[in-house]
Computed example of a mutant assay.
Amino acid sequence: MGTPEFAVNILQKLIEDPSFNIKLVVTQPDKPVGRKQILTSPPVKEFALKFNLNVVQPDRLKGNQEFFEILNRINPDVIVVVAYGKILPKEVLQIPRYGCINVHASLLPEYRGAAPIQRAIMDGRDYTGITIMKMDEGLDTGDILLQERIKIEWTDDVITLSKKLSELGGKLLIETLKNISNISPVKQDSTKATYAPPIEKDEGQISWDMTGIEIYNKFRALKNWPGIFTTYKGKLLKIHDMEIVNKWKIEDVQNGTVVEVDDSGIVVKLKDGAIKIKELQLEGGKKISARDFVNGYKIKKGDILS
Rank of each mutant, 00 (worst) to 15 (best):
I239R: 00
Q281F: 04
S41H: 12
P42S: 03
V158Y: 07
N255G: 09
E260H: 14
K13I: 06
L107K: 00
A115M: 14
Q94I: 03
R60Y: 15
T131I: 04
K300G: 06
C100F: 00
K278N: 08
Q65E: 13
D77T: 04
F67M: 02
P29Y: 05
V267L: 06
E283F: 11
I132L: 11
K301E: 10
V78E: 04
E91V: 05
D59N: 15
I174G: 01
S289W: 09
K178D: 13
P185C: 05
A221R: 08
I150Y: 13
H104A: 04
P76D: 05
Q147H: 05
L165G: 08
K164S: 10
V25D: 07
V103F: 03
L24E: 05
Y84C: 02
Q118C: 07
H240P: 07
G169D: 10
D189I: 05
T128H: 09
A290H: 03
G265L: 00
R119Q: 09
E91K: 00
G129T: 09
I183E: 07
A221H: 08
G265S: 03
V80G: 10
M122T: 13
D77V: 01
P96H: 01
E66G: 13
V258W: 07
P109D: 03
Y232Q: 02
L14G: 03
T128A: 05
A7P: 13
G169Q: 07
K164N: 07
P96A: 00
E69P: 08
T231I: 08
V56I: 14
I299E: 01
E200D: 13
L146D: 11
W154P: 14
R112M: 12
G227F: 02
Q57F: 02
K235I: 01
K223Y: 14
I132N: 06
N179L: 06
I130A: 08
L49D: 11
E167N: 15
Q12K: 15
I101D: 03
L14P: 11
M210K: 02
A115S: 15
I117A: 08
G302A: 07
I288V: 15
Y195D: 07
V259Q: 09
T230N: 06
E167V: 12
L237D: 01
V253E: 11
S184D: 14
I215G: 00
R220Q: 11
V78T: 12
I288E: 15
I87W: 05
V258S: 04
G124A: 10
K31T: 09
Q118H: 13
K218Q: 10
V158F: 05
K249Y: 01
